[in-house]
Simulated scan of single mutants.
Amino acid sequence: MSSDIVIHPVTNKSQRKSFVELAYRLYKNDPHWVPPLKSETYALLNPKKNPFFEHAKVQLFLAEKDGLPVGRISAHIDYLALEQPVEQGLGPGTGNWGLLEAEDEATASRLIDTAEKWLKEEGMDRIIAPMSLSVWDEPGLLTTGQDHSPTVMMGHHKAEYQGWIESRGYNNVKELVTYHLPIQDGLPPLIDRIVKSGERNGKLKLRKVDKSHFDRDAKIIMNILNDAWSDNWGFVPLTDHEIDHVGVKLKPIVYENLIMIAELEGKPVAFMMTLPDLNDRTKDMNGSLLPFNWVKLLWWLKFPKSPTMRVPLMGVVKELQNSRLASQMAFMMIEYIRREAVAKYGATRGEIGWILDDNKGMVAIADAIESKINRVYTLYEKAI
């Protein structure tokens, strides 16, 4: 009975540990779940380590039954999101919840009710969810693609969660999609011709990221990103501290020949970031680097081999968007990185995304290289 469920705000280390550990029990028999490194999850929830907390208010809730954890949820308000235009999806009065995990529908319902009550008491009148925690982390609920494991920094959720959430009056507001692409045999002939045409443009230069100047190139990429995505649905600008934090977090899995910056007459105007799929290496570690998993991970980071490459981020400055040059630069970066990924990392497939389902430019690029949607993450909204 739902009346036996007790919901506690997380206020101490013991409850925080139960909050984190719950997912490892609920998914232990799911062959497609990739246990995140627990250190990463604790860091995500730590106000001293995650700069998201500098512009957000977060409350975690833990559900218990007979003294045992049976569910969890976060409720949070991103004050930078409240400043965004309403027509871009967020804006004034919009709060979020996320990190939902539950043993059963009754528990999920109680947790969602609790998050809604907290957000309403904080002055919110609308919810976009799930958001775990920021739009830059793992937004959306996996609604298509539970039959294969997610790539690095992507979420995985139980199929029944969709019905549980929708039964609480939540409506689909946006879909985020990822595209699967076999990469061993190259891109379609039309793309090859576009790439060769771009190579004849003397004003255009594509270069690899330089790890000896990592901080410089990381800031270039993030500044392009803030400009390129600024009109996108759900956009919230990254702060300077968040840009620095992302750089530190990604540096261990950054490889110079997998990230490119395009320069037009010497000015950075576009980038493409590709990451080898760390999940291939960590899937069997059950979230822990002890006792010897840290050695395996360090070795892999030094000599990475991965059948899968993920493209989490691409961007072209706004002034060039919707131009032929924008798509040409995208195809050139995709092809150059594809060659490196196959030859030096043993990659056989790529995954691009997430991409907003109505981002016509990126959808057109994905279609042109003959990639196919393999995962869909759904964001829901509800008035409260």
Rank of each mutant, 00 (worst) to 15 (best):
A347R: 03
L90V: 06
N29R: 10
Y179E: 01
M329N: 00
S134Q: 01
T274G: 11
T348N: 10
P9H: 08
K283E: 02
T11A: 11
L258W: 02
L238Y: 08
R310H: 08
E381Q: 14
K372D: 11
V173P: 00
M222C: 11
N201R: 14
G123K: 03
V20G: 04
I384N: 03
L190S: 13
I112G: 06
G91F: 08
A218M: 15
L258I: 04
A108N: 06
N232C: 09
G266D: 10
W33S: 00
G155N: 13
A43N: 11
P130R: 06
S109Q: 14
D358Q: 12
R281G: 02
F214N: 07
A108L: 01
K219C: 10
R281Y: 01
L100K: 01
V248S: 12
T94E: 02
V246R: 12
K13N: 12
W118V: 08
E319K: 15
I194M: 07
T143F: 01
S132Q: 08
F271G: 07
L379I: 12
N286P: 05
I384D: 06
L250S: 03
G169Y: 03
L278H: 02
D231S: 15
R168S: 06
G266T: 05
N257M: 04
R216P: 07
Q88I: 01
E351T: 09
L90F: 10
D147C: 01
A228Y: 04
D210C: 02
K382P: 10
E351M: 07
K318Q: 12
F53I: 06
M131N: 10
L187D: 02
S306P: 03
P51K: 04
I165D: 09
E83F: 09
H148K: 14
M285S: 09
A102L: 01
G315Q: 06
L301Q: 05
S134Y: 05
I224G: 05
Y380C: 08
L37H: 09
L298F: 13
E122S: 14
P312S: 06
S167Q: 09
E319A: 13
W118R: 00
E335S: 13
G91T: 04
T348C: 09
P291H: 09
M362V: 12
S149L: 01
F52G: 05
L181Y: 00
W299H: 13
H55L: 03
E319P: 07
K120N: 13
A330S: 15
N12T: 07
L45E: 06
Y79P: 05
G361P: 05
K48D: 15
H213L: 11
I128F: 13
R339Y: 09
G202C: 11
N232P: 01
